[in-house]
């Protein structure tokens, strides 16, 4: 066979091609993103082995509940899902029962009952139009998927929450708008949500805006990708299996082809 050298050559082309494609794709997917750059934090959940920080998530849930949930819903999350961030059944039941949902009784009347673990998080507004009307026309987006629904979602969210600064003197701020250095266009309908000691953490962590922003982001990152830890864990075993299979099949291939190559 004369192809020993040319095979080598084509292998390299193949590698080059795949690497090039991957680089290209990465360029393309970020090229369309925002031009503002945010501080890049070292999240516990980033990276191949990254996992969520339970304590931070639980504090984040508290921030969500006490600060965000006045305007933002999380309609894709159910109370029962909180088990995954370390709450037991009784805690979840108690947490759920603080909310009420509408139901229809046997007489056909709409009545309220307290929420159960199987219910989805109760949204602050009955529908999108009510949400807009109550917020001067700006729609407070549902937060269930917010980290996945923004490019570089976790860093973006953290930046946005901590990006409220005094507006430059030449900037006119219309009524009902606020200045945020990380928001596209700098004018945002959401007033600054996080202030020093805005919540009182049960575990004694000092509730600085920075801390609260990190915690609520950790919570929302989990809400966007509740499967993430399972996914990465399974991924590691699958990759190990595939590496072994690749090695085995490579040597088996060499064995089978040996007589042909010798000719």
């Amino acid at each position: 066979m004369t192809n020993a050298s040319s095979n080598f050559f084509y292998n390299n082309i193949l590698n080059f091609f795949l690497i090039f494609l991957i680089i290209l794709l990465s360029k393309v997917s970020f090229a369309a993103g925002e031009k503002i750059s945010y501080p890049q934090l070292n999240w516990s959940f980033s990276g191949i082995f990254g996992t969520f920080d339970r304590a931070s998530q639980q504090r984040g849930l508290q921030v969500y509940k006490e600060v965000c949930s006045g305007c933002h819903g999380m309609r894709l999350l159910a109370y029962r899902n909180l088990k995954a961030i370390g709450y037991n059944e009784d805690e979840i039941k108690a947490f759920a029962s603080e909310n009420s949902v509408n139901t229809i009784n046997d007489d056909g009347e709409v009545v309220e009952r307290s929420a159960r673990p199987s219910d989805k998080f109760v949204s602050p507004y009955p529908n999108d139009k009510a949400a807009r009307a109550a917020n001067g026309g700006a729609y407070p987006p549902d937060l269930s998927l917010i980290v996945k629904a923004r490019p570089d979602g976790a860093n973006y969210l953290h930046a946005l929450l901590t990006g409220y600064i005094d507006a430059p003197t030449d900037q006119k701020i219309p009524d009902g708008m606020y200045y945020n250095k990380y928001y596209a266009g700098n004018l945002i309908g959401m007033p600054q949500p996080l202030y020093e000691d805005g919540v009182e953490y049960a575990d004694g962590t000092k509730a600085t805006p920075e801390q609260m922003a990190k915690d609520v982001t950790a919570f929302l990152a989990w809400a966007s990708e509740p499967e993430m830890e399972d996914r990465k864990r399974l991924g590691v075993s699958v990759m190990l299996f595939l590496l072994l299979l690749t090695a085995l099949s490579y040597f088996a291939m060499k064995q089978i082809w040996a007589p042909i190559k010798e000719q």
Binding site: M239, L242, L245, S249, M253
Partner: peptide
Amino acid sequence: IKDLFGLSVFLSFFAA
């Protein structure tokens, strides 16, 4: 066998 080897390489990228 060559296709199986190619498949495992492909699947490694895909699984990643």
